[in-house]
Each structure stands twice: as structure tokens, then as C-alpha cells.
Amino acid sequence: MAVNSFQVFGRVNIGQTVAIVAAVLLLGRFEQWEYVPAVVCLVVGAHFLPLARTFAQPQYWWTGGLLMALALVGAVALGGGDGSNGRVLLGFGAALVLWTTALHVARKG
């Protein structure tokens, strides 16, 4: 049975949602709330990887890779006790990556 791109999109986004909810619950259970932004950024980045091939959007490889790298840098900043700067780095960094990807896709068509 062939899987169409809409099915892949749905499965990837359900997986992303489950992973984020599970991560928040797990981090909360261990009182590690400061890592939530980094883990969310990591999961969002990872969700772009299967979509790159499915939608023939090679820039999604870069989007996913940059978001995952940003998540790791952010986790180090957050773990080093620099919570506010880590959140700013993650928030603005992720916004920059996602807006750049959206503009690129919009221009490409």
C-alpha cells in the first residue's frame, strides 16, 4: 500500500505532538523545566527531516539540521544556568530559521 504525502505529513505531525507532550511530561516529572524550549526546538527540527523527501523540499534538511543544532546550543546555555539568554537564543534563532525557510519556500513556489 502506497503512502501519500498527506499521510506522511499527518503521521509526522502526530509523532511531533506526541514527542513534545511526552518530553514536557518527562522533564516536568524530573523538575527540568528549563530544558523544555530546547527539547521542543529539537523535536520541531527533527520533524522536518522526513518531510524534506516527502515534499521534495531539500531546504528542509537545512531547516531541520539548523533547528537541531540550535537546540543543542540552547540546551548547553540553559543547563549552564543562563536561562533567559538561552530562551532568547532559542526563540529568536528558531524564528529566524523558520521565517527564512518560509520565505524560501514561498519564493520558490
Rank of each mutant, 00 (worst) to 15 (best):
E34F: 13
E34Q: 15
E34G: 14
Y35N: 01
Y35P: 00
Y35S: 02
V36Q: 09
V36W: 11
V36E: 04
P37N: 06
P37W: 12
A38Q: 04
A38N: 07
A38M: 04
V39T: 15
V40C: 06
V40P: 05
C41K: 04
L42Q: 04
L42D: 00
V43N: 07
V44S: 05
V44W: 04
G45F: 06
A46N: 12
H47C: 03
H47I: 12
H47T: 09
H47S: 08
F48Y: 11
F48H: 14
L49G: 10
L49Q: 09
L49N: 08
L49E: 05
P50R: 07
P50Y: 06
P50M: 06
P50Q: 07
L51Y: 06
A52H: 07
A52T: 09
A52I: 10
A52V: 09
R53M: 02
R53F: 03
R53S: 08
R53W: 00
T54Y: 00
T54K: 01
T54F: 00
T54V: 06
F55V: 10
Q57C: 01
Q57Y: 00
Q57T: 06
P58A: 02
P58F: 02
P58Y: 05
P58M: 09
P58W: 01
Q59M: 08
Q59D: 03
Y60P: 05
Y60L: 08
W62T: 14
W62V: 14
W62A: 11
W62Y: 09
W62L: 13
T63E: 04
T63R: 10
T63L: 04
G64C: 12
G64W: 03
G64D: 09
G64K: 12
G64E: 06
G64V: 15
G64N: 15
G65C: 14
L66D: 06
L66R: 08
L66V: 12
